Amino acid sequence: MPSSPTYVNIAAYKFITLDDTVEKRPQFVAVCEKLGLKGTILLSPEGINLFLAGLRESIDAFLAWLHTDARFADLEVKESQSDRQPFTKMLVKLKREIITMKNPLIKPEEGRAPAVDAPTLKRWLDCGHDDAGKPVVMLDTRNAFEVDVGTFNNTVDYRIEKFSEFPEVVAQHKEDFSGKTVVTFCTGGIRCEKAAIHMQNVGFDSVYQLEGGILKYFEEVGGSHYRGDCFVFDYRTALNPKLEATDTKQCFACRAVVTPREQLSPYYVPGKSCPHCRKALTRPNE
């Protein structure tokens, strides 16, 4: 039997002023549909954020087309592979922000916070301090349910439910980071880029973002100093440090992450319910 095709999954973003999102949207739709790609592209006045999957030649053709626009010529892409198409449709959306923080003072295009690459971060974590001798603190900027799937060892997790909560909660804990180097991180780099800039703006004196996020870290150094997997927003639900899909699932009904052990529960019915749904229904009567 012929082998099934391998799909290439790409994730990328760039903060760049876009004043022609309305005009660009139908162009993106047409190119993606012609190439048979599926996924989501967000266009906003502050930039582009995309998650796409397709066959190798289609992905390459899309990137070649995208790079003809000088604004996207240096767009850096993170790749992984899967044996099936991880998306069910192709969407190109117009948004106010490509990642919602509700803080108009954050303008990454005007200057990024310092970034640390994966090999350097691993070396810092191996040593327990950065090159200046400061203790390194990992700060997760993702939502709580994502963190529960996996995160760096000894990370700071504020259990936020949405990214717009981050500025207020980190301000409440500013003194906790005195004399330390903070490394913000997220799945692919976009949230931690905004987070690091905000922290600089409000007076944190030693803060970095993890370049390329967890996925780039996995790609370059594997899972060292990381426990668990990384949540992703497609059918794969989570990737391990080898960038392979795991058995973790997401409930269609309540959107909770369902571990392999939880999938053994009689309350787990794929596409309908899970143990977390059951807890939510019984909680008011407890």
Rank of each mutant, 00 (worst) to 15 (best):
D140T: 01
Y158A: 04
V170M: 03
K134R: 14
R191T: 10
D148C: 06
D148F: 08
K162Y: 12
D126G: 08
P119I: 02
H198W: 15
T184K: 05
D130Q: 06
T141E: 10
K162T: 14
A144V: 04
E193H: 05
N143M: 08
I160T: 09
C127R: 15
M101G: 02
P114H: 04
N154H: 03
H173Y: 00
K194M: 12
I197L: 13
E165S: 00
V136G: 08
E110H: 14
V149D: 01
D148H: 13
V147R: 12
K134F: 15
T100S: 15
I197T: 08
K180F: 02
N103M: 15
V149F: 03
G133Q: 07
A171R: 14
K122T: 05
D117R: 10
P167Q: 04
R123T: 11
R123S: 15
D140P: 04
I160C: 13
V137Y: 00
P119G: 03
K122L: 12
P114A: 04
D157Q: 08
F185H: 10
E110Q: 13
K102V: 06
N154W: 00
K102N: 15
W124H: 03
G133H: 08
D131Y: 06
F145V: 06
A115N: 12
M199I: 06
H198C: 10
D176I: 02
T151E: 03
G189Q: 00
R159W: 05
L125Y: 07
Q200S: 11
C186T: 05
Y158Q: 03
Q172Y: 10
C186K: 06
K180R: 09
K180T: 02
T155L: 01
T184Y: 09
I160D: 03
P135F: 09
P114T: 04
T184M: 04
G150T: 11
E175W: 03
V116H: 04
G179R: 02
P167H: 08
N153D: 05
A196L: 13
D131W: 07
A144F: 14
P104L: 05
A113M: 13
T187L: 05
D126V: 03
C186W: 11
V182C: 02
R112K: 13
V156W: 06
M101L: 14
R191A: 12
P119Q: 00
S164A: 11
C192V: 09
G203Q: 02
P135A: 07
M101N: 01
D131N: 06
C127S: 15
F145L: 14
N143P: 02
P114I: 10
P108L: 07
V202H: 11
N154E: 02
P104Y: 10
T120G: 00
T155P: 00
G189R: 07
I106N: 10
A132T: 11
T100L: 13
T100M: 12
E109Y: 15
F152V: 01
G111S: 01
Q172R: 14
G188D: 09
A144R: 08
E110K: 14
D148E: 13
R159P: 01
D131M: 02
G189S: 12
R112H: 15
N154D: 01
G188K: 08
C192G: 04
T187E: 07
